[in-house]
Simulated scan of single mutants.
Amino acid sequence: MELRNLFFLVVSLFSLSANAQFGFFDQMFGGGGGAQQQAQQQNVRSDAAWYQQQYEGAHCDKYLCPGTLSCVHFPHHCPCAWESVEDKVELGEGIAVCASKGGYKEGETMRKIQWARKGLL
């Protein structure tokens, strides 16, 4: 009986090893279920039709921000799309821009933009 159990143990280990080995090759070369699952996901279209549809369907009785589709009173009140990594800097005359955060200090982005406007950067 003990020899028979040992035989089943060895056969089980070989089957697990083969399954792991061929599962690796399936993943590497696109076989198996992984490729089917990826084929079901689709990328966003590269044309602007979806965005235009969202823009035209948005209700705003003031100013609709083109980058975020936020409804604000004035164009320079538009929020940045990625506030966690961008700072909004108002340049004057109702113009504002969003720029990547400039460093570790508060207001670093504004300082760098002012240096660039003066030709120092």
Score class of each variant (00 low, 15 high):
Gly31Phe: 07
Asp61Val: 05
Gln27Asp: 11
Gly32Ala: 09
Gln52Asp: 13
Gly34Phe: 01
Gly23Gln: 10
Met28Ser: 14
Gln54Asp: 00
Ala39Gln: 15
Ala48Cys: 10
Phe74Met: 10
Asp26Gly: 00
Asn43Gly: 07
Cys65Trp: 04
Gln36Ile: 08
Gly23Ala: 04
Ala49Asn: 10
Gly57His: 08
Gly67Lys: 14
Tyr51Ile: 02
Ala58Asn: 06
Gln27Val: 02
Pro66Ile: 07
Asn19Leu: 13
Leu64Glu: 01
Gly31Glu: 08
His73Ile: 02
Gly32Ile: 11
Gly23Ile: 03
Trp50Asn: 06
Lys62Trp: 04
Phe24Cys: 01
Ala39Ser: 15
Gln38Tyr: 03
Leu16Arg: 04
Gly67Ala: 14
Gly33Leu: 09
Phe24Asp: 03
Ser17Phe: 11
Val72Thr: 05
Gln27Met: 08
Phe24Thr: 04
Asn19Thr: 12
Gln38Arg: 15
Gly31Lys: 07
Ser70Lys: 04
Leu69His: 09
Tyr51Gln: 08
Gln21Ile: 07
Tyr63Phe: 15
Lys62Cys: 00
Gly57Cys: 03
His73Asp: 15
Gln21Leu: 11
Ala49Leu: 12
Asn19Lys: 03
Gln54Gly: 00
Pro66Asn: 12
Leu16Ala: 13
Ala35Val: 10
Met28Thr: 12
Trp50Asp: 12
Asp61Thr: 12
Thr68Tyr: 02
Gln38Ile: 06
Arg45Tyr: 00
Cys65Glu: 03
Gln41Lys: 14
Ser46His: 02
Gly67Asp: 15
Arg45Thr: 04
Asn19His: 08
Cys71Ser: 02
Ala35Gly: 15
Asp26Cys: 11
Gly32Pro: 10
Gln42His: 14
Tyr63Glu: 01
Leu13Asn: 08
Gly31Leu: 03
Gly30Ile: 11
Ser17Gly: 14
Ala35Pro: 01
Cys71Phe: 02
Gln41Val: 14
Gly32Val: 12
Gly67Cys: 02
Gly33Ile: 03
Phe14Pro: 00
Tyr51Glu: 05
Met28Glu: 15
His73Thr: 09
Pro66Ala: 09
Ala39Lys: 15
Gln38Lys: 13
Ala18Cys: 09
Val44Glu: 10
Gly31Arg: 07
Ala20Leu: 14
Val72Ser: 02
Gln42Val: 13
Tyr55Cys: 00
Arg45Leu: 07
Gln54Trp: 01
Phe25Trp: 13
Phe74Glu: 09
Gly33Val: 06
Gly23Pro: 03
Ser70Phe: 01
Ser17Asp: 01
Ala18Ile: 13
Phe29Gln: 11
Gln27Cys: 05
Phe22Trp: 12
Ala18Ser: 13
Cys71Pro: 00
Leu69Pro: 01
Gly30Arg: 12
Cys71Gln: 01
Tyr51His: 12
Asn19Asp: 06
Phe22Asp: 07
Phe14Leu: 14
Ala35Arg: 15
Gln42Trp: 04
Leu9Cys: 11
Phe74Lys: 04
Asn43Val: 05
Gly33Asn: 06
Lys62Tyr: 05
Lys62Ala: 11
Ser17Cys: 10
Gln21His: 11
Gly33Asp: 06
His73Gly: 09
Ser70Trp: 00
Ala35Phe: 10
Gln37Trp: 04
Gly33Cys: 01
Leu13Glu: 05
Asn19Pro: 00
Gly23Arg: 06
Trp50Met: 07
Gln38Val: 06
Gly30Phe: 11
Gly57Met: 02
Gly32Trp: 09
Ser70Arg: 04
Gly67Arg: 14
Ala35Glu: 13
Gln27Ser: 07
Gly31His: 01
Ser12Glu: 04
Ser17Ala: 14
Phe29Asn: 14
Ala58Lys: 15
Gly34Leu: 09
